[in-house]
Design a protein around this nucleic acid. Structure first.
Lengths: 270, 270
DNA sequence: GCAAGCATCTGGCTCAAGCCAGTTGAGATA
DNA sequence: TATCTCAACTGGCTTGAGCCAGATGCTTGC
């Protein structure tokens, strides 16, 4: 490096520090390095001790700066190994077409499988429990259950793409519909999967309602879905509605937001 | 690879400490107190110094435990005041009906206003900039713009509910459509708002595509939307599509996830 | 060429001490 | 009664010291 070539404008740099505490200044500089490609995705950060020396702060402070970036989702640290700049993963895009009756009849696949395999990954679904329980209030409302008969079948499913857990779904089915069918007691749904069985019982999926929110995961979810720090979850309350406008099924999904997205095409009614 | 599928078990309490580091144990106990109502929403936490003494740890450690809960979105700390248990706010529920042509013609309101006022709040929208720019790649794709003519009007809007900033939207409109209309230069859209003007130009909104994701906010977003720690944002890439299946507008929304949710009712095609 | 063993390094976590700016509430003042 | 002042307190943040378990990489022995 020889002559000083004057910079144009400062697209980024020196708004970085303006009486901010050292850990913030440091975090800002590291963030800039990540965003401008100096620290490309996948590359390990320098050690805390090196960073501390480089920026003239205590190791503690350096660690805090790193933690800031971690909480922003820019950095991933695994156990006690070097933290790395997080790689942007390709999202699973979940649309409404996956519920299509035609698609189901043609492929015989469940909505999740259909979607994941379309995107070139390997799908796996684990049904971890099937129980008969009284419906939680939120669910009873959406299923229009009478107060004196709110028994539902609760089915818990874990969804994997390429052997990585990506979401959990809990399906609630009115007992009146599930009774005496595989819905009530078998993890194996057969051809056409869940919605095939609903159709057998006279409920053809015609509308869905999707209520979508996002929040930070609970500790249980963090553990169960192996969610890295700085990654939220997307919550979806999905209601299946049949040809007679009757809800026949509610599923609550909890999905890792770094691996899943939603993609809907919706007709606007006049 | 044996995936860990956690069980229900442990409805709540005493898995709390099992060789976890003190700050975790402490966080778990505090979390339990919050979830079981001992510390109701809105109530202030004891001071760090009190907590430290109560749990027999250094103040530093107590502060870290609090920070854990903050990052989970359970606690809100404002500047240098006592942290409080976060109150669950009512969500703005954004559906697709707000784009309805009939609704627009009847009320003359923009989609956001229609939705917010329906929910009994006061809506305000600030148009902070209108520029003519080349379309970012993501946008050009969705608008089907030819590479040699990718000029768009970029309109930045800030949305407030009851005077609180809840989302930002950036709308991109092909220059060919905006040229010579208020779309190109005026913050004031007139009756029927944005989509009224599109209709004037022969583009009646018929379909929308909504691509939804979630992530932690950038520092700019945190500042601009006054997002508390532990709250993610919901990203929506919204594409407006007309009666001829032509996209005529793309808007990217960034919304506070603690104040906004989405609620779609979607017809399943056979 | 390969596996096992081992010393080194790293991040996770805790502590005690301390400074500072902003919040808070009680009491004084108008 | 309403406003102002001010001292006490609070959380934010930093430091430097230190312990530990796990990751890492080199060396040794087969």
């Amino acid at each position: 490096m020889n002559e000083e070539v004057p910079q144009a404008a400062e697209t980024t740099t020196e708004a970085v520090e303006q009486d901010l505490p050292p850990r913030r200044v440091m975090a800002n500089k590291l963030r800039a390095d990540i965003l401008n490609g100096e620290l490309p995705p996948g590359s390990p950060l320098p050690s805390q001790r090196e960073l501390a020396e480089k920026y003239g702060v205590a190791r503690n402070t350096a660690a805090e700066a790193v933690k800031i970036l971690e909480s922003e989702g820019l950095i991933e640290s695994r156990n006690r190994a070097r933290p790395k700049v997080r790689e942007r993963r390709r999202l699973l895009r979940l649309g409404a077409e996956r519920y299509s009756n035609r698609l189901r009849n043609e492929t015989g696949l469940s909505p999740f499988r259909a979607e994941v395999e379309k995107q070139g990954k390997t799908a796996r679904v684990n049904c971890t429990s099937i129980e008969r329980v009284p419906a939680p209030e939120e669910i009873a409302e959406r299923l229009d259950l009478p107060a004196d008969d709110d028994t539902v079948v609760r089915r818990e499913n874990w969804y994997f793409a390429d052997d990585e857990p990506v979401q959990v779904g809990i399906t609630y089915i009115p007992w009146a519909i599930a009774e005496g069918t595989v819905l009530a007691d078998s993890p194996n749904m057969g051809k056409g999967s869940l919605y095939g069985r609903f159709e057998d019982r006279g409920h053809r999926i015609t509308w869905i309602r999707e209520e979508i929110g996002s929040r930070m995961p609970t500790p249980e979810e963090t553990k169960g879905l192996a969610i890295p720090a700085g990654v939220p979850v997307i919550d979806v309350i999905h209601t299946g509605i049949d040809q007679d406008e009757k809800p026949f099924e509610v599923t609550t999904f909890t999905m890792r937001a770094d691996l899943n997205g939603l993609d809907y095409r919706i007709r606007i009614e006049d």
